[in-house]
């Protein structure tokens, strides 16, 4: 999922200062799990705005905030409130915010969160980055652990000289990706195979921005 973090509330309120009427949109997927854009956080921001004497015309947790058409349909029932709204605040990720930008051609749309990374929830509200969306998955060759993401240098062929007792040179908080990969390969009996295989330079043209995918076309 997309991991998000709340922007500093004081700074956010400062940014929103020039508006009086708001509509807040959350998301029931990632942002709810991250505790950044569920009902609770929407109510919290609503309270903060109201404390400052501003009006919140409506709050709504979209089913999937990055889905443009679906969200547009869901928002139909709030037409009146939205018409009176001067600023839409989106409390999900950057994609959710830009879905709203597409829906509200003539209204300012502001994000309440910073979007951080694609990751996994390891425990309640604890997140690890696991995938860099490189466009060319190599997990089949690296014991199922992604070195492009888990190794700060993105090394593809084994540990650098900086690994110390299983930790990364960059920080003792980071387990060395290549020690983890090696240990898993040992369990799977894949180390011999690994020794004989060299991964060539990655093809970064697979991740030139902005990317687009037409899955309909691909199905044909």
């Amino acid at each position: 999922m997309i991991i998000t973090r709340k922007k500093n509330r004081k700074e956010l309120l400062e940014t929103l200062k020039k508006f009086n009427n708001f509509f807040l949109i959350g998301c029931s997927e990632c942002a709810t799990l991250c505790g950044t854009g569920g009902q609770e956080q929407l109510d919290e921001l609503k309270g903060l705005l109201e404390e400052q004497g501003r009006t919140v015309k409506g709050v709504f947790v979209a089913k999937t905030g990055c889905q443009v058409l679906g969200t547009k349909v869901e928002l139909k029932k709030f037409k009146e409130a939205l018409d009176e709204t001067g600023c839409v605040v989106v409390m999900s990720c950057g994609a959710g915010t830009q879905a709203a930008v597409e829906i509200f051609a003539d209204k300012p749309v502001y994000p309440s969160n910073d979007s951080l990374f694609l990751g996994n929830m390891t425990r309640l509200q604890m997140f690890d980055e696991r995938c860099s969306l490189c466009g060319e998955c190599i997990l089949d060759k690296t014991g199922g652990i992604c070195p492009v993401t888990a190794c700060p240098k993105g090394i593809l062929n084994g540990p650098c000289g900086g690994t110390k007792d299983g930790h990364c040179e960059v920080s003792p908080e980071i387990p060395c990706a290549w020690v983890r990969i090696w240990e898993r390969m040992e369990k799977l009996g894949q180390t011999e195979e690994f020794k004989l295989m060299t991964l060539g330079a990655k093809n970064w043209s697979a991740s030139i921005k902005p990317r687009k995918l037409n899955a309909r076309e691909e199905k044909k």
């Binding site: 084994g158 540990p159 000289g161 690994t163 110390k164 180390t191 690994f194």
Partner: peptide
Amino acid sequence: VVTPEANPLAPQLAKFEK
């Protein structure tokens, strides 16, 4: 370069071969 005192050593040796 190679680090003969790497801990763990086995993956370092694998990389040495590579």
